[in-house]
Protein backbone atom coordinates (compact mmCIF):
# COMPACT_ATOMS: atom_id res chain seq x y z
CA UNK A 1 0.00 0.00 0.00
CA UNK A 2 1.52 3.31 -1.12
CA UNK A 3 0.92 6.39 1.05
CA UNK A 4 1.75 9.99 0.15
CA UNK A 5 0.43 13.41 1.01
CA UNK A 6 0.96 14.65 -2.53
CA UNK A 7 -1.72 14.32 -5.21
CA UNK A 8 0.11 11.61 -7.09
CA UNK A 9 2.45 8.70 -6.52
CA UNK A 10 5.69 9.54 -8.33
CA UNK A 11 6.37 7.18 -11.22
CA UNK A 12 2.86 5.69 -11.08
CA UNK A 13 -0.35 6.43 -12.85
CA UNK A 14 -3.71 6.65 -11.09
CA UNK A 15 -6.18 4.38 -12.87
CA UNK A 16 -9.12 4.42 -10.45
CA UNK A 17 -10.33 6.59 -7.60
CA UNK A 18 -12.39 5.23 -4.71
CA UNK A 19 -12.94 8.42 -2.72
CA UNK A 20 -12.31 9.34 0.89
CA UNK A 21 -11.00 6.78 3.38
CA UNK A 22 -10.52 7.50 7.07
CA UNK A 23 -9.11 5.93 10.21
CA UNK A 24 -9.24 7.04 13.81
CA UNK A 25 -8.29 5.99 17.32
CA UNK A 26 -9.07 7.48 20.69
CA UNK A 27 -6.47 6.61 23.29
CA UNK A 28 -6.05 7.37 26.94
CA UNK A 29 -2.65 7.50 28.62
CA UNK A 30 -1.93 5.21 31.53
CA UNK A 31 -1.17 6.32 35.03
CA UNK A 32 2.52 5.36 35.10
CA UNK A 33 3.28 7.49 32.10
CA UNK A 34 1.28 10.28 33.64
CA UNK A 35 3.33 10.40 36.83
CA UNK A 36 6.56 10.73 34.85
CA UNK A 37 4.94 13.37 32.69
CA UNK A 38 3.77 15.22 35.81
CA UNK A 39 7.36 15.58 36.97
CA UNK A 40 8.39 16.78 33.51
CA UNK A 41 5.68 19.41 33.74
CA UNK A 42 7.75 21.15 36.43
CA UNK A 43 10.98 21.36 34.46
CA UNK A 44 9.48 21.51 30.96
CA UNK A 45 10.67 19.78 27.82
CA UNK A 46 9.58 16.70 25.94
CA UNK A 47 7.01 14.33 27.45
CA UNK A 48 8.55 11.25 25.86
CA UNK A 49 5.85 8.85 27.05
CA UNK A 50 3.15 10.94 25.42
CA UNK A 51 5.13 11.29 22.19
CA UNK A 52 5.40 7.50 21.93
CA UNK A 53 1.77 6.95 22.86
CA UNK A 54 0.49 9.36 20.22
CA UNK A 55 2.83 7.91 17.59
CA UNK A 56 1.58 4.38 18.26
CA UNK A 57 -2.00 5.60 18.12
CA UNK A 58 -1.45 7.47 14.89
CA UNK A 59 0.01 4.30 13.42
CA UNK A 60 -3.21 2.49 14.44
CA UNK A 61 -5.30 5.16 12.72
CA UNK A 62 -3.20 4.80 9.56
CA UNK A 63 -3.62 1.00 9.64
CA UNK A 64 -7.40 1.42 9.82
CA UNK A 65 -7.35 3.85 6.93
CA UNK A 66 -5.23 1.40 4.90
CA UNK A 67 -7.61 -1.44 5.74
CA UNK A 68 -10.57 0.59 4.51
CA UNK A 69 -8.70 1.44 1.31
CA UNK A 70 -7.72 -2.19 0.75
CA UNK A 71 -11.34 -3.23 1.26
CA UNK A 72 -12.35 -0.93 -1.59
CA UNK A 73 -9.76 -2.48 -3.89
CA UNK A 74 -7.29 0.40 -3.70
CA UNK A 75 -3.52 -0.07 -3.53
CA UNK A 76 -2.60 3.48 -2.54
CA UNK A 77 -3.85 6.43 -0.50
CA UNK A 78 -2.89 9.88 -1.73
CA UNK A 79 -3.32 13.31 -0.16
CA UNK A 80 -3.11 11.86 3.36
CA UNK A 81 -3.81 14.33 6.17
CA UNK A 82 -3.54 13.95 9.95
CA UNK A 83 -5.44 15.65 12.75
CA UNK A 84 -5.14 15.40 16.53
CA UNK A 85 -7.74 16.64 18.97
CA UNK A 86 -8.24 16.20 22.68
CA UNK A 87 -11.70 14.82 23.25
CA UNK A 88 -11.68 14.27 27.02
CA UNK A 89 -9.43 14.56 30.04
CA UNK A 90 -6.32 12.53 29.34
CA UNK A 91 -7.54 11.22 26.00
CA UNK A 92 -6.85 12.27 22.44
CA UNK A 93 -8.23 11.33 19.07
CA UNK A 94 -5.81 10.65 16.25
CA UNK A 95 -7.39 10.89 12.84
CA UNK A 96 -5.98 10.11 9.41
CA UNK A 97 -7.73 10.57 6.08
CA UNK A 98 -6.94 10.51 2.42
CA UNK A 99 -8.10 9.56 -1.06
CA UNK A 100 -8.02 5.87 -1.94
CA UNK A 101 -6.81 5.19 -5.47
CA UNK A 102 -5.48 2.39 -7.65
CA UNK A 103 -2.10 3.05 -9.23
CA UNK A 104 -0.17 1.15 -11.88
Amino acid sequence: MYLTNTETIPGKEITACYGLVTGNTVRAKHIGRDIAAGLKNIVGGELTGYTELLNESRQDAVERMKAEAAGLGANAVVNVRFATSSVAQGAAELFAYGTAVRVE
Partner: peptide
Protein backbone atom coordinates in the same frame (compact mmCIF):
# COMPACT_ATOMS: atom_id res chain seq x y z
CA UNK B 1 5.20 22.71 -1.63
CA UNK B 2 4.93 19.67 -3.92
CA UNK B 3 8.05 20.52 -5.95
CA UNK B 4 6.91 19.48 -9.45
CA UNK B 5 10.32 18.61 -10.89
CA UNK B 6 11.29 16.45 -7.92
CA UNK B 7 7.95 14.65 -7.90
CA UNK B 8 8.37 13.95 -11.63
CA UNK B 9 11.93 12.61 -11.25
CA UNK B 10 11.36 10.64 -8.04
CA UNK B 11 12.18 6.92 -8.08
CA UNK B 12 10.27 6.16 -4.88
CA UNK B 13 8.11 7.93 -2.34
CA UNK B 14 6.79 7.37 1.14
CA UNK B 15 4.90 9.24 3.81
CA UNK B 16 7.25 10.29 6.63
CA UNK B 17 6.47 12.04 9.90
CA UNK B 18 8.03 13.32 13.08
CA UNK B 19 6.28 14.32 16.26
CA UNK B 20 6.96 15.52 19.76
CA UNK B 21 4.88 16.37 22.82
CA UNK B 22 6.34 19.34 24.67
CA UNK B 23 5.42 20.93 27.95
CA UNK B 24 6.28 24.25 29.49
CA UNK B 25 8.11 24.46 32.82
CA UNK B 26 6.50 25.62 36.06
CA UNK B 27 8.23 29.00 36.11
CA UNK B 28 7.22 29.89 32.55
Amino acid sequence: VPHAAWVRDAQASELVSGSVVVSIDYYK
